[in-house]
Amino acid sequence: MILKRKLLIAVVLLVSSQSVFAEEIIVNAERQFDKLTKTTVRAMFAMRIHQWSDGTPVTVYVLKDNNPIHITFCKTLLGMFPYQLRKIWDRQIFSGTGVGPIQLNTEKEMIQAIADNKGAIGYISSTADTNSHSISTVEVIK
């Protein structure tokens, strides 16, 4: 009986730890949509799409390359590895053909930055507290 309960707790922990690793893309609440294609999201985080359809400039926020949230975001939502994004950014930054994203240190800074900039896009882990901020989550579709 005790063993069963321990097993149950272990399963619950496993399931909940899974959900900790689910990441979500967030944008400023002024963006009037809740879906983006994977192709568009990839191109935006590669710094290759420069404006939203209404003409507002896109501002991309990311966390540091080795931040676990950044790593999971790249793998699960973009289907890429952090080093691939880093290569694309560096190629643009150091040949003058483009720019890199704005790197932040914490999820809290990310939420604040996106609430403050109407052209912003970024990501958070789904456990982050986003209440009382003018941001909305976006679903990535195929």
Binding site: T37, T40, A43, R48, I49, H50, Q51, S53, S95, G96, T97, G98
Partner: peptide
Amino acid sequence: ADIRLFSNQHVSSGIYLGRVK
């Protein structure tokens, strides 16, 4: 100078003018 001629969610095109790698 990176002059963007056209840009949307499917295409972006433009011109680089000057010394380019």
